[in-house]
Each structure stands twice: as C-alpha cells, then as structure tokens.
C-alpha cells in the first residue's frame, strides 16, 4: 500500500506497541528497584543482579539451558535445512504428504502433547532422561520452525542458478555448498537463532522430558514464579531480554547490510554488462 497512515492508524499502532512493550518495560524497571516489593519504587539499585550471580541453583540452570539451546539449535538447523530443501526442490516423492504434515504440525501442536508423547517414547525404550532427552525434544519441534524459515527463502530465489551450475558439470553436493548455501545463509542463520531462543524459552516440553541434573532456567523461573514476584526473577528476565534483543537487532542489521551489498554488486554487474550489450 502506498498511502500514508491516517491519525486512526497512528493511534492504533501507538496503542498496540504500548500494549506490547509496557509490561516488559515495567519488569525491567523494577529489576533495578532497591526494595524487595515489586510495586513500590524505593530507589535505583543493582543489588538483585549481584544476588543472582551468587544463586548457584540459578547459575547451574542457566548453564544447562545455554548448552541445551546451543546443541539443539545447531542440529535442528541442519535437519530443518534438509527438510526445507526436500520440500522445495525435490518435487513429488513417495510419502511427501506425510512429510509436509510432520513438518507443519509441530508448529501448532500444543506443547503438552509434544512433551507427553516424547516422554512416553523415552520411557518405552528405557532411555535415561536428562540433558540429551531435552536436546532431542527441542530439536524435534525447532527443526520445523527452521524448515519454514529456510523454505520461504528457497522459494523466493531462482532455481535456474542451481540448474546452470549442474548443467556445467558441478555435482549436486558442491552446487549446494557453493551456490545454494551462500544465498540462503541469512535464512539459515535466523533459523538457528529462532531455534536457539525457542529452546531457551521452553518450559512445558522440557518439564516433561527432563531428568535428574538437567533443570533448565525456565523450569527454575517457573517454580519461583509460583511462589510470587521477586526482584531476582525480574533481574534474570531482564538479562535474558537484553541478550535476545542484542542478538535480534545485530542479526537484522547484518542481514540488511548484506542485502545492500548484494544490490550494489548486482548494480555493478549490470553496469559492467552494458557496453557489451550496446
């Protein structure tokens, strides 16, 4: 649409964004509150952050969560990218309907069902529950998100570039690494980040599939939240929000810069072509 926004549009946007951001802002502000009460402002203090780093249970959980998120996001990115290539480039094959069903269903599947079913699988095969069962569970649902992100990028770029490479004798594997991967890389990276944050956030699936010694940060936060709102939890949340914000903003700036460079390179290529065409 190319018409400017009206007053009504601006007001609804401002209210919408206020609704989205005010609760988070309030949470951040009260993490710096001197008082233990989270509603009465008693002056600026960072003491809750210090308290946090002395809380060993919380620190352990944070470390477990970071490891789970890193491992599961990395494997999910590989599997999700393969799934996206299968869906976009391989046309019809036996069992395609089932496959695309299995890729889309986890996106909307209630977490309680995914968690329960995976736990019952691990129990049925007598697999010791702990770090790896949480990792497997997280890979399973986040690879589908990666697949969708990578898929939309694969659909939008011209397959003839790949075909040209293969016509010139480049083997499919090499074509993928030399041509396809560099083009879809921004989508692969944002897929990885999405998988990482999904894993970082997950409470329900982790609660079902975890075992001794693998308590994740959301599980820790959840058990404390049930006891009430505390400034330490506000502080943990603020740190998590800051990390995610920095990650997302950096990623989007990098992608934008790449896009600009690509356009510049394309323009240069067109200019270089012109004299020959004339």
């Amino acid at each position: 649409m190319n018409r400017g926004p009206s007053w009504f549009n601006i007001t609804s946007m401002v209210m919408g964004f206020a609704f989205l951001y005010l609760p988070i802002l309030i949470l951040i502000i009260f993490s710096f509150n001197e008082s233990r009460l989270v509603t009465v402002w008693a002056g600026f203090s960072t003491k809750w952050y210090g308290e946090l780093f002395r809380n060993e249970g919380l620190m352990d959980a944070a470390w477990v969560t970071a490891r789970v998120a890193f491992v599961s996001a990395s494997i999910a990115t590989v599997l999700g990218t393969l799934a996206a290539i299968t869906l976009v480039r391989f046309g019809r094959f036996h069992g395609r309907t089932l496959f695309s069903g299995m890729v889309y269903a986890p996106l909307v599947m209630p977490e309680v069902i995914t968690g329960l079913s995976l736990l019952l699988l691990f129990v049925a095969v007598n697999f010791d529950r702990g770090f790896w069962t949480v990792v497997i569970a997280h890979i399973t649902f986040s690879m589908c998100f990666v697949a969708v992100v990578v898929q939309s990028r694969l659909v939008s770029f011209d397959a003839s570039v790949e075909e040209a490479a293969m016509d010139l004798g480049c083997p499919p594997g090499k074509t993928f690494f030399v041509i396809t991967l560099p083009i879809i890389l921004p989508a692969v990276i944002s897929g990885w980040m999405l998988a990482f944050t999904l894993s970082l956030d997950d409470l329900v699936i982790a609660s079902f599939t975890t075992g001794p010694g693998a308590t994740t940060l959301p599980m820790k936060i959840y058990s404390q939240v049930r006891l009430g709102v505390t400034p330490e939890i506000n502080a943990v949340c603020t740190i998590l929000i800051a990390l995610v914000t920095i990650g997302v903003v950096t990623a989007s700036i990098v992608t934008k810069r790449q896009e600009i460079e690509r356009k510049r390179a394309e323009a240069a290529a067109v200019r270089a072509d012109e004299p020959q065409q004339v």
Partner: peptide
Amino acid sequence: LLMLVILPFWTSFLIRVYAWIGILKPEGL
C-alpha cells in the same frame, strides 16, 4: 515497525506472562 513486532515474539513466553502478574495482582501496579 516489523522488528518491533517480532522482538517480543523472540522474548520468552514465560517472562512475558510473568510481567503481567506484577501488573494484575491485587497490590500490583
């Protein structure tokens, strides 16, 4: 603007729900 919509989506569900407890509870904000 798009980024502003996506950003909360990346922030933890649990954190965003927790933020509302502080606002809505009887002695809350």
